[in-house]
């Protein structure tokens, strides 16, 4: 059966031209040509609702879902490379990621609901840069390297520098996020992500990612904590002298949580939670994440 429609009553008001390139080069050329007037369409789980509401009105939509190369997870000895179109459910279920970076699959499995996870992509979530999103603190804690490509240039930006402000990233209008490179965590190193959500499938009121490396005697060798949901961008603390070399015990944990609280200067207040509550919960969830990561560093679950 074939039908012709007029298209007079579309929800999206702004007419746009739709492209479905099959290669990265084609997509980059279109992006370079149309720049601010164009939007990349990945999972569409943030972009399409925003277009439906008229918050974003691109004149050119570049759908990257037909570029097969952008859907792979690759592993080598020291590194995992995730292409941007890998969907949340794939990250949650991937054996490679579960084994090497458990907190990344943990974060993915807590994004939205099952239907959103079937469609939404890691690249889209990163580029959307919602302050309450889940991947940002995890990737910042891991110091993931984001590979950014334009027609003429390729550059690498650490996830710690990528998020500039709420919904604002390092990306220029003609640039595409092409890959996410994550160093595998070493021996005796554990990672964990702990999220406070008010309903299953809700955005993070607070989301804390922790990476803990312990030495042979169980003393802290390395500790990184990154907190999402609390300020306009993730707050990442790489702990130094004071905490390193100490045991995971109450006094140490309290000091770590205190340091996290001190680092929060402008907590977000909204209908879900006020700023002081977010700050307090950041400490509570830091404790949980650090304890879980430390336990994993010792080989536990």
């Amino acid at each position: 059966m074939a039908v012709n429609t007029g298209g007079e009553k579309e929800v999206i008001h702004q007419p746009f031209e739709y492209f479905a390139p099959k290669t990265i080069n084609e997509a980059l050329k279109l992006l370079n040509k149309y720049r601010e007037d164009a939007k990349i369409l990945a999972g569409g789980q943030s972009l399409v609702p925003m277009m439906n509401l008229g918050i974003v009105s691109p004149k050119y939509v570049i759908d990257i879902n037909n570029i097969g190369k952008l859907s792979e997870i690759r592993e080598n000895k020291n590194q995992i490379t995730i292409a941007p179109l890998v969907r949340h459910y794939e990250i949650a279920e991937s054996k490679i990621i579960k084994r090497a970076i458990p907190m990344l699959s943990e974060a993915a499995s807590h994004i939205g609901d099952m239907h959103i996870r079937h469609r939404g992509t890691i690249g889209g979530a990163i580029c959307h840069a919602d302050p309450a999103a889940d991947y940002a603190p995890v990737l910042a804690a891991l110091d993931a390297k984001l590979e950014i490509q334009s027609v003429k240039r390729r550059r690498i930006v650490s996830a710690r520098n990528f998020f500039k402000d709420a919904f604002t990233t390092e990306l220029k209008p003609n640039e595409l996020l092409k890959a996410i490179h994550i160093q595998k965590v070493g021996q005796r190193t554990g990672t964990a992500y702990q999220k406070l959500e008010f309903v299953s499938g809700g955005y993070a009121v607070v989301g804390v990612a922790a990476l803990v490396a312990l030495d042979g005697e169980g003393l802290i060798e390395k500790l990184v904590v990154s907190v999402g949901g609390v300020e306009r961008r993730p707050i990442t603390i790489v702990f130094n002298g004071d905490v390193l070399g100490r045991k995971i015990e109450n006094a140490t944990i309290e000091e770590i949580c205190g340091a996290v609280k001190d680092k929060i200067s402008e907590p977000l207040s909204d209908i879900h939670a006020d700023g002081e509550y977010r700050r307090s919960m950041a400490a509570v969830y830091t404790k949980r994440a650090v304890l879980k990561a430390a336990n994993r560093a010792l080989g536990g679950e």
């Binding site: 074939a2 039908v3 429609t5």
Partner: peptide
């Protein structure tokens, strides 16, 4: 099959 306005959801 159908021919549609790209805005159609």
């Amino acid at each position: 099959s159908a021919e549609i306005d790209p805005r159609m959801l």
